[in-house]
């Protein structure tokens, strides 16, 4: 499996990372190199093997339905690039 420039651009778009032509040109061989190397996993026989779900045997604990957080708007907004009237503000989204 190999990626071409169009695929690189597509992935970059999915990942919301702007890429210049030069960056695409640099990424294409790099990604192909890495992906080509990863390809060797295909030779492993995994018949009947379940994908790993928990690294170390452990069971999920659940939280009680108690309100013990929130009410910290200033903290939540403290590092915002732009916050107005208690909201985060982002470039206008046209729906």
């Amino acid at each position: 499996m190999s990626v071409d420039a169009a695929t690189v651009r597509h992935i970059a778009k999915l990942a919301r990372i702007a890429v210049s032509d030069e960056e695409v040109a640099a990424l294409e061989p790099e990604l192909n190199n890495i992906l080509g190397w990863i390809e060797q996993l295909q030779e492993v026989d995994v018949t009947g093997v379940q994908p790993m779900t928990a690294v170390i045997p452990n069971t999920l604990r659940m939280r009680q339905d108690v309100v013990n957080d929130g009410g910290i708007r200033d903290d939540v907004l403290a590092n915002a690039p732009v916050a107005e009237h208690g909201f985060f503000a982002v470039p206008k989204v046209i729906e």
Partner: peptide, 15 residues
Amino acid sequence: DAYFNQAQKVRALIA
């Protein structure tokens, strides 16, 4: 399936 799921299976084999 080809990548991520395969990798999680190989990971299980490594473990």
